[in-house]
């Protein structure tokens, strides 16, 4: 296994080519839910700073794929290497990877008994052992970045869906992740709130964060992604730059999918 720079401060070190430029590499990965074969021979390399959009019909395994990357789901065959650390049953490794990989969920999953600010400071304080004052200061910076510092003292139940999702993004960013995973971050939002969340995500993408985004927001895919991956029935069917993907889809399945989501 290649040893990789794991220092917390040394984010995105220059542009030296080599193994450390690979952020995530997945080889021959299979996953089953009981008898059901959800992911079939998935191979994927993500370079540092790359923005990837994953799309596909529901049940195609796209959420499961990104949930395997931080071990919310366990894969049964093949290998997943995140930032130089191979995912095994070793709990310590899993916790390290999870603290370096942020995740944003479809239903936000904010902690309802904590204020927005406490949601953001919880992990830095209890995982990174950061002093409370410092964690709060950092959290306020991120809440400003997602443009809701004035809601810091409110509980999730008092915020709109769009505001909750932005708090959730800030909560992940507070851990200074190297990689961000987004699992359909706008699917549960009202139309007028989708925009405010997408704006934050675009800004994050422009800052150079490595991002894997499961979404059907094709505007987002065209605007910021480096690559679009299309999945169906547990397989990666097609992988291309966004321009090519939308203009010249190669597979019949992709064409059908695009015609369905673009014509509605």
């Amino acid at each position: 296994m290649a040893t990789v720079d794991r220092t917390v401060g040394g984010r995105r070190p220059g542009s030296t080519m080599g193994a450390s430029e690979i952020s995530i590499s997945i080889h021959g990965m299979h996953k089953w839910f009981g008898q059901f074969h959800v992911l079939k021979d998935v191979n994927l390399e993500v370079k540092r700073g790359e923005r990837i959009v994953i799309c596909g019909p529901s049940g195609s395994g796209k959420s499961t794929l990104i949930r395997c990357i931080n071990r919310l789901e366990e894969h049964q065959q093949g290998s997943i290497v995140v930032d130089g650390t191979k995912l095994t049953n070793d709990l310590k490794n899993i916790e390290i990877i999870r603290s370096e990989v942020g995740m944003v969920f479809q239903h936000f999953n904010l902690f309802p008994h904590l204020t927005a600010l406490e949601n953001c400071t919880l992990a830095p304080i209890w995982v990174r052992k950061m002093p409370k004052a410092e964690a709060e200061e950092a959290a306020m910076r991120y809440l400003e970045r997602v443009r809701i510092p004035e809601q810091a003292g409110k509980y999730p139940g008092q915020l709109s869906g769009g505001q909750q999702q932005r708090v959730a993004i800030a909560r992940s960013l507070c851990m200074n992740p190297r990689i961000m995973l987004f699992d359909e971050p706008t699917s549960a939002l009202d139309p007028e709130m989708i925009k405010e969340v997408l704006e934050v995500m675009v800004e994050l993408a422009e800052s150079g964060m490595t991002m894997l985004v499961v979404t059907h927001e094709m505007g987002f895919a065209t605007a910021v992604s480096d690559r679009v991956i299309f999945m169906d029935a547990g397989e990666i069917i097609e992988e291309n730059s966004p321009e090519e993907f939308f203009k010249n889809p190669r597979h019949e399945r992709t064409k059908l999918f695009l015609s369905q989501i673009l014509s509605h």
Binding site: I96, R98, V101, M103, F105, N109, L122, A123, V127
Partner: peptide, 10 residues
Amino acid sequence: QVEAADSLGL
């Protein structure tokens, strides 16, 4: 809730 806690490395 558990998944969110897990994903933060708790």
